[in-house]
Design a protein around this nucleic acid. Structure first.
Length: 115
RNA sequence: CCAGGAGGGAGGGCGACCGCUCGGGCGAAAGCCUGAGAGGAAAGUCCGGACAGCACAGAGCGAGGUGCCCGGCGCAAGCCGGGGUCGGGAGACCGACGGACAGGGCCACAGAGACGGAGUCUGCGCGCGCUGCGCGCAGGGUGAAACGCGGUAACCCCCACCUGCUGCAACCCCAAGCAUGGCCGUCGACGCUGCUCGCCGAGGCCAGGGUAGGGGGCACCUGCCGCGAGGCGGGAAGGGCGCCACUCGGUGCCCUGAGAUAGAUGGUCGCCUGAAACAGAAUCCGGCUUACUCCCCUCCUGGAGCG
RNA sequence: CGGGGUGUAGCGCAGCCUGGUUAGCGCGCGUCGUUCGGGACGACGAGGUCCCCAGUUCAAAUCUGGGCACCCCGA
């Protein structure tokens, strides 16, 4: 996922999380807010409770990869913030990918897919 | 062969598909091609240095750190070599180290008594003004320790050596310009009013924090080949292992350099035998400590077997 | 990344600097009393790896070193 599709600034994260549009899953939480930039931008938050630096990096990279596989199917103009919960450290790749898909569908950003 | 001790090495490889950051080439652009891309501990942040800002005549005090002896490197911590004492082990080997006649403080409970002045019980001996007292010797009991000028400096302290304070979120620069301040041949209102002037508001110009934004700090120099990134060499710097000198040092070989900024170095598989553990750079370098895997090498100790 | 702090009973804290006495206080908990019953009150009582591992010392919650967890501050 290239830099222009990422959320970069603290103000962006605060705006999306203040929008109160959120969906929860045992592994992840998704916040969504419309943006005036005509792109789908995303940020990933992995707190210290999830684990050490190696674990946090792995979780973030897996979420980013799962999101990258769906990026082309998402309608532009929205900012997303994914927050990893503690069990995501022990989740397998397939579970994490399913969680991302499920949250995107529930947020009505992704239509039914037969993946 | 088994058990153990010391030191050192290694910390996955190959392939497929899809990706990320930085650099380079081509291109008007989208993009395409191409080079490089985490560790031995990157960790904990326990120390030191470089670097930066501030402070600073010199000296002293305070505060902090280190501590057997000799030698080497280093400002110092620390590391290396040799030696010593004590403790552990059958051994190889491992662990701990200044000073208690410079001074002060503390030593609960038990005990007569915890250290300067006293003094318990029993026995023996001697003396006397003899139901006892005094002196001397030995022993018992309490306690970690009992008169032995005890123990405690990981209590203050003494001795020797060292140290300014704060830290890359340091610090420097840039554009925008808010708070605020200054100036004005401008306009309006008010005060005395004839002007000057004072004052308030608007306007213009200038300066301009802090925060937020961007950049630097931030990764050495150079010859050849290549369009270039880069590759192969050379040099400097730092580190490791040697050799010669042992006062400055000289010299040979080897290793190292990625540069993100909501933060790249990956995701999913297949094979290698069944690839496993601890774990992710954030200014850089060195030391210490802690975490940990499948193995490999060298030397040594003890035991068993065979010749 | 850098700097600083805190871990003691179910909860909130004291004790640590200056080592020793029984590890204490409030709330909570249990039993009994009081009341027709409850609350309040009174009496008695239970409950502690003093975060963990080493070391110094006769003796460690306290001193020293090393870990672990949590919290705060700095552009």
């Amino acid at each position: 996922m290239k830099r222009e599709f990422r959320l970069r600034k603290t103000a962006d994260f605060q705006r999306v999380r203040a929008g109160k549009q959120s969906w929860a899953h045992p592994l992840l939480v998704l916040y969504v807010a419309p943006s005036d930039v005509g792109l789908t931008r995303a940020g990933i938050v992995v707190g210290k409770r999830v684990g050490g630096a190696v674990v946090r990096n792995r979780v973030r990279r897996r979420i980013r990869e799962a999101l990258r596989l769906r990026h082309a199917d998402l309608p532009p103009g929205y900012d997303l913030v994914f927050i990893a919960r503690e069990p995501s450290a022990r989740a397998a790749w397939s579970e994490l990918r399913a969680a991302v898909d499920r949250l995107l569908r529930r947020a009505k950003l992704l239509k039914q897919f037969n993946s």
